[in-house]
């Protein structure tokens, strides 16, 4: 297969592969850039949304101990959210792909946990004491 690859592969292909590889990091770069403008002393708030409606907001800064609650949708979908100290995660979910659970804990402003099948989004927002919110959805 490798010999075949070398035989077909042209320089243009290599350029495309490298270019696509680099471009796929573009969202990450923008994200890091946006996040850099949030100051450290901001209050971190986790906003839990379902179907684009806010169903819970939790102040993470200064939070201690373990709390957990369940998000139950009308059609029986369940996501269990767990907050340990200043981190938040989805501990278990009845969705098929389990992406939200693999995302694990988040704690920094701008980070999100997304459960597409259940339309549940947890987003950490920063509330600056001096200026307006810089992170928006």
């Amino acid at each position: 297969m490798l010999r075949q690859l070398i035989k077909i592969m042209r320089r243009g292909d290599m350029i495309i592969v490298i270019l696509l590889f680099l471009l796929s990091f573009l969202p990450l770069a923008i994200f890091t850039y946006v996040q850099a403008s949030v100051s450290d002393d901001a209050t971190k708030i986790a906003v839990v949304k379902m179907d684009n409606e806010i169903i819970e907001t939790i102040t993470l800064t200064g939070n201690r101990g373990t709390q957990s609650f369940e998000i139950v949708a009308d059609d029986g979908d369940i996501n269990t959210v767990e907050i340990i100290d200043e981190k938040i995660r989805i501990r278990s979910a009845t969705c098929p792909d389990q992406v939200c659970i693999l995302t694990s804990f988040i704690e920094n402003p701008g980070e999100t946990i997304v459960c597409i099948p259940h339309k549940v989004v947890i987003e950490i927002q920063a509330e600056n004491h001096h200026e307006e919110l810089l992170i928006s959805s």
Partner: peptide
């Protein structure tokens, strides 16, 4: 669907 572009961070 999720109404947040941070999903794109999954792209790499």
């Amino acid at each position: 669907v999720a109404n947040t572009w941070t999903v794109m961070l999954y792209l790499p």
